[in-house]
Write a protein that binds this DNA or RNA. Sequence first.
DNA 1: TGAATACTGAAGCAACAACTTGACTAACTG
DNA 2: CAGTTAGTCAAGTTGTTGCTTCAGTATTCA
Lengths: 106, 106
Amino acid sequence: MELDIDRVFQALGDPTRRAILNRLSLGPQSVSKLAEPLGVTVTAIGQHLQVLEETGFVHTEKTGRVRSCRLQSAGFKAVEHWAVEHRATWERRLDVLGGLLSEDDG
Amino acid sequence: MELDIDRVFQALGDPTRRAILNRLSLGPQSVSKLAEPLGVTVTAIGQHLQVLEETGFVHTEKTGRVRSCRLQSAGFKAVEHWAVEHRATWERRLDVLGGLLSEDDG
DNA sequence: TGAATACTGAAGCAACAACTTGACTAACTG
DNA sequence: CAGTTAGTCAAGTTGTTGCTTCAGTATTCA
């Protein structure tokens, strides 16, 4: 299964979704527990979770009436892969000009 | 200057913008040269470039009537930083359950 | 100087994204 | 079984995004 890198980055571009990831990094949570501190409805969280599932950041599983959500590696790995793959390229690029131009572009 | 990580990821969430980055990884280019193979107007590229500048991926400089665009490190570093910072977290998280659950979630 | 080139700015538009409400289903609880 | 709890589905709203066109400005060229 191939992740859509577009959607992976789009997923991370939303603060609520990153907040969900941060929350899940402390351990698995139910949908309503995730919604509680974020000031949005459970429905909204459900929609975000669908995006996060499709992009490989989260795995969810419904047991009884509770859906338990936990982190999944695929999404993170996709980002890391992109970063690693591109680091070489832009570093080479910057090195070419780096000798002459000021490199204080951070 | 502090980059907005929201906008950094949003910037990468667009295929045209990533295409621009790929193009620039081969070397600096003018706005119109960037537009040429992408099937969009120069105006659109200008708008994308503004986003890429604000998010630290690109530096542009106008000489005469030509704007020359080249890669900049800040944006890439921001992504890498996020990836590194979160790798530890989700790896720990996955390790906790990894012993029991199947880890074939890639 | 006049024409072509390279870009910029404002305005508008269609598609999408994040969110809501309200009606619903399913599952525990007393 | 009635009531509460957990989540889902469909639809609608609002704001944003990616793009366009058209009219401009500045620069280079013949």
